[in-house]
């Protein structure tokens, strides 16, 4: 159990979102897609140039840029 930033999670690592610091449009978009505290995520992989990152959330796959993932704190297992 440890708090890490989503950017630093490894492939296939799982965790639960604890905090989202983003405001404005980015915050709204992240929340619209179901990324809120309590949501479970798993890292599916990263693009060939290591950015963006692909996540599994509530059964679908979502992509985020690394600098957008910085706003999301995850408690990893």
């Amino acid at each position: 159990m440890a708090l890490v930033c989503l950017r630093h999670m490894k492939k296939n690592q799982r965790g639960e979102i604890v905090n989202i610091k983003a405001d404005g449009e980015l915050g709204r978009r992240i929340r619209d897609m179901g990324l809120v505290p309590g949501t479970k995520v798993m890292i599916m992989g990263r693009a060939p140039l290591f950015d963006p990152v692909a996540l599994r959330v509530m059964g679908f796959t979502l992509t985020l840029r690394n600098n957008e993932a910085d706003y999301i704190e995850v408690e990893v297992k």
């Binding site: 449009e25 980015l26 978009r29 992240i30 619209d32 897609m33 963006p52 692909a54 679908f60 796959t61 979502l62 992509t63 985020l64 840029r65 957008e68």
Partner: peptide, 10 residues
């Protein structure tokens, strides 16, 4: 830049 929060549909 517009956020890249995007779905990868099946």
């Amino acid at each position: 830049s517009t956020p890249f929060v995007m779905e990868l549909p099946p």
